[in-house]
């Protein structure tokens, strides 16, 4: 009749019992905090997505099953959000990570001087928070006085005037540009740390064997930073699937514009939950986002695990 942990407790050694007590003490504060602010609301989201509720009426509405899901997904903004989120995930996974890795390898594995200057240069974007970077880029992208168009103009292309944030065909890439600009710095600094830890004798041995720089990068650097790369790519994937801090400053309060070209799931959720009274739809979109992120990140980690070299 007794639950198994109690049996286990009785049979446990003094050391185990003491460890259990300490574990309870160490785990409890964090678990309570996460319980209140992560797990409970996450479970509520799943529940809420099956009910009809505007988020403000004192009483929650009827159980409607999957109806909220079909309402939340049968429209153009949603398909744009999914498309953009997936694209952004792919960009997050590869672009800042690859640029960061290549830059770190170029600076660390060669005799460039002064190294601190180059390190500083690649890390500069991270001094700004992502949201501030995006707010600054509203100016960088301005069609008339913006930095980019001014440079284009100064180079002599006087009739070229891209509407970076106004043209629906390029706005999403402009937004991703801010993301890449900012996050590459993070990838760069972590890869720098990882490359510095690589045993120097490996490089020397490769040189003796007559390996080229590219071969050294391919056969020594990349395999050595594999675990770090998995960590960085996972973070970039998660951030890339929810880059709200970029899209918000670029398009607020008309989030996701122009004409839904920069819509992502988080902007849709923010609009439903915070700019209108569609709590249920926001919850349904939240569940979809949850499934998307868990699915993609798990698939990525599974793939990394499967392709890991056996040692």
């Amino acid at each position: 009749m007794l639950p198994r942990p109690l049996d286990a407790w009785r049979g446990a050694s003094a050391k185990s019992r003491e460890q259990w007590r300490l574990a309870a003490l160490l785990v409890a504060p964090a678990l309570v905090l996460m319980g209140i602010f992560v797990f409970y609301p996450a479970l509520q989201t799943i529940r809420l997505s099956f009910y009809k509720w505007d988020g403000i009426s004192p009483e929650m509405g009827d159980f409607v099953g999957f109806k909220t899901f079909s309402r939340a997904t049968d429209n153009y903004p949603f398909s744009q959000a999914i498309k953009n989120s997936l694209l952004w995930g792919v960009v997050g996974l590869f672009v800042p990570t690859i640029i960061g890795l290549v830059a770190a390898a170029l600076v660390e594995d060669t005799n460039l001087r002064p190294k601190p200057l180059f390190r500083f240069a690649f890390f500069v974007p991270y001094f700004f928070s992502m949201a501030v970077a995006a707010a600054l880029f509203t100016r960088v992208y301005d069609p008339s006085y913006g930095m980019i168009n001014q440079v284009i103009h100064a180079l002599g292309f006087t009739d070229v005037k891209p509407q970076w944030l106004g043209d629906g065909r390029i706005a999403i890439y402009a937004a991703m540009g801010v993301f890449v600009w900012h996050e590459t710095a993070f990838c760069y600094i972590v890869f720098t740390a990882a490359i510095q830890q690589i045993d120097r004798s490996l490089y020397d041995a490769a040189k003796v064997d007559g390996a080229s720089e590219v071969q050294v990068f391919r056969y020594i650097t990349i395999p050595s930073v594999r675990d770090v790369a998995t960590f960085v790519m996972t973070i970039m994937l998660i951030v890339g699937l929810t880059p709200f801090a970029v899209v918000f400053p670029l398009t607020t309060p008309g989030l996701g514009g122009p004409y839904y070209s920069t819509e992502i799931l988080p902007t849709l959720i923010f609009k439903k939950a915070r700019m209108g009274y569609n709590a249920s739809e926001a919850a349904a979109l939240g569940v979809i986002l949850l499934i998307l992120v868990i699915g993609i990140v798990s698939a990525f980690l599974w793939f990394r695990e499967r392709t890991a070299p056996k040692d």
């Binding site: 996460m34 209140i36 602010f37 992560v38 797990f39 409970y40 609301p41 996450a42 509520q44 989201t45 809420l48 988020g55 998660i238 699937l241 929810t242 709200f244 799931l265 988080p266 959720i269 923010f270 939950a273 915070r274 709590a279 926001a282 919850a283 939240g286 569940v287 986002l289 949850l290 992120v293 868990i294 990140v297 798990s298």
Partner: peptide
Amino acid sequence: MAIVTPVFSYLEPLTRV
């Protein structure tokens, strides 16, 4: 699980809490 659960997914219930 908490790592892969974006805040956005539970934004509205969180504000209620």
